[in-house]
Design a protein around this nucleic acid. Structure first.
Length: 490
RNA sequence: GGUCGCGUGGCCGAGUGGCUAGGCAGCGGUCUGCAAAACCGUGUACGGCGGUUCGAAUCCGCCCGUGACCUCCA
């Protein structure tokens, strides 16, 4: 199959035509969360971005195997292979078993993903579930001469590797430059090279999460899980590997080195990285303490938030910027997104009430072409949304009787709307009022508004306005129509 | 210090060597008893200074500002 899709490849720093290795199949691996704490909004952005990418690939007809891991072991506090285990630390803090920590935050992560309407990956493997695969991989790397063991810990020999392959390729750096930015080895260090990193780490007596291995009891290094699991489920070379930009320099660089050293082949054809979410211009991060939890955002329970914003508003807000751009968070920007989102969704409702004319006065096909062009250009969702607002204008104009759509164009418009708003962008209608509309409350509001209608007919505008003002104050928005009214609860 | 970005009208945010991005807000109009919604019209934006070019916000150079990574974080 042939498409016009072009993707930006971090590896080459260029946009490239997307040509999967085994079409129509596409293998995509995305680095998932380390489940030792709540995911914040910045994390969510990456997964929402890749959700849209996944959805669009599927929409184009690719058979995508989407693998997103759960890191539930082996992630140390520092990346110098000497810090405390993140799970053990959290477990101590919360007086839990490490696996209880894992369970708690895995469930929390899934909840957030569901609320944001992201599709589940095809496979969601865990590090602890693939210890033997990781051990096999480490053995292989040792056999190939790119790793060495010191007292139960196995290190990757970066300088050796760099003689054969470009270690700093992903971030366009030379080994010398990398070495410069690294501290000297201290007398106590057991690694040979300053850039060497652990593939397998010897357990200390107090280590809780540990497994037997050829090098004694220990646990895997952080990077090896992704190499092992991507190889297992997607093969030695697969199409897309994604993750946040912050993983590029260390995690992904090491991942490439490990896979290459083990399998003797380049692991990934297209590397894709999403940019950071910022707050007041600075990166949202756990350590900076400026990270929002999704829950705080929805309820507005955060000092920086004026009020809450719904999950779909947030999703729409994110889609309004390109995944490779930073996105800055502010109340003003969110409120603008909220209005835009509502406009888009309302037009969708209007679309289904339209009646067809004998012929069209506007063309839908042109917009459709532009929508595909936008997404084909490295998943350019902000441009896609701009075109969808052209469709919105047409829908509303037809509704106002100013433009006309033929039956076939009307069908085309519905299809277009469904495809891009719901299937690709993954937005949903948030009809909080729908249950209320059908209940007693709805009946009562209809009753009141019918009384108001009579007042209007009698030119008793004082009463009519009073009813409207008071209902508005209670959150019932009223729109008068030609021969009646519409209302909705805010 | 090294690597890579970014700087677009009131706010957010795309983009292209010459042709309207879009959303929100504002202003004027249509509609309406008045509103709301919708629609129409409206903004001569691209950090600064040079250079290339018939033409640059878009390419090049320098400068200023700012951010990310190089140390845990998507």
């Amino acid at each position: 199959m042939d498409t016009n899709l072009v993707v930006y490849n971090t590896l080459t720093r260029k946009k490239e035509k997307f040509e999967p290795i085994n079409p129509p199949f596409v293998g995509m691996y995305v680095c998932g969360p380390t489940v030792y704490s709540d995911v914040h909004l910045g994390n969510s952005r990456t997964f929402i971005s890749f959700d849209i990418i996944y959805r669009y690939l599927a929409h184009l007809g690719y058979k995508v195997r989407y693998v997103r891991n759960i890191t539930d072991a082996g992630h140390l506090e520092g990346d110098r292979d000497e810090g405390e285990d993140k799970f053990a630390k959290k477990a101590k803090l919360e007086k839990l078993e490490p696996m209880e920590v894992v369970q708690k935050y895995t469930i929390g992560f899934h909840d957030v993903m569901r609320i944001f309407n992201t599709l589940s990956p095809s496979i969601e493997p865990t590090a602890t579930g693939h210890i033997s695969e990781q051990i096999e991989m480490v053995k292989e790397i040792i056999d190939n001469g790119y790793a060495y063991e010191v007292g139960g810990t196995v290190y990757f020999d970066v300088e050796k590797y760099n003689k054969d392959y470009p270690y700093g390729q992903l971030t366009n750096r030379k080994l010398e430059d990398l070495l410069e930015g690294t501290r000297e080895l201290s007398g106590q260090d057991e690694k040979k090279g300053r850039l060497d990193f652990a593939l397998w780490i010897k357990a200390k007596p107090e280590t809780l999460m540990k497994w037997p291995s050829p090098w004694g009891w220990g646990f895997p290094g952080w990077h090896i899980e992704c190499s092992a699991m991507s190889t297992k489920y997607l093969g030695e070379t697969f199409d897309i590997h994604g993750g946040g930009m912050d993983l590029q320099a260390t995690h992904h660089t090491n991942e490439i080195a490990q896979s290459q050293a083990c399998n003797n082949t380049t692991p990934v054809k297209y590397w894709m990285h999403t940019n950071m979410l910022t707050v007041n211009g600075a990166r949202m991060s756990k350590s900076a303490g400026n990270g929002f939890l999704p829950r705080e955002l929805f309820t507005g329970d955060h000092p920086l938030l004026e009020r809450g914003y719904s999950p779909m508003v947030v999703r729409f807000f994110m889609a309004q910027s390109h995944y490779r751009s930073t996105l800055d968070f502010s109340n003003e920007a969110l409120q603008a997104a909220e209005k835009g989102f509502q406009k888009l969704i309302k037009a969708g409702e209007t679309l289904h009430k339209l009646t067809a004319a004998s012929e069209s006065t506007v063309t839908i096909n042109e917009i459709k072409t532009k929508c595909y062009q936008a997404m084909d250009d490295d998943f350019n969702t902000p441009v896609l949304i701009a075109h969808l607002f052209d469709l919105v204008r047409i829908i509303n104009s037809v509704n106002d009787g100013k433009e006309k759509l033929s039956q076939s164009d009307l069908e085309e418009a519905k299809k277009l709307y469904q495809s891009f708003v719901f299937d690709v962008l993954g937005l949903q209608q948030e009809l909080l009022e729908s249950t209320e509309n059908s209940g007693l409350t709805g009946d009562l509001i209809d009753l009141i508004l019918n009384l108001r209608l009579e007042a209007k007919k009698n030119k008793d505008f004082a009463t009519a306005d009073k009813i409207r003002d008071e209902l508005t104050e209670k959150g019932v928005k009223i729109k008068d129509t030609k021969d009646g009214f519409e209302w909705e609860i805010e």
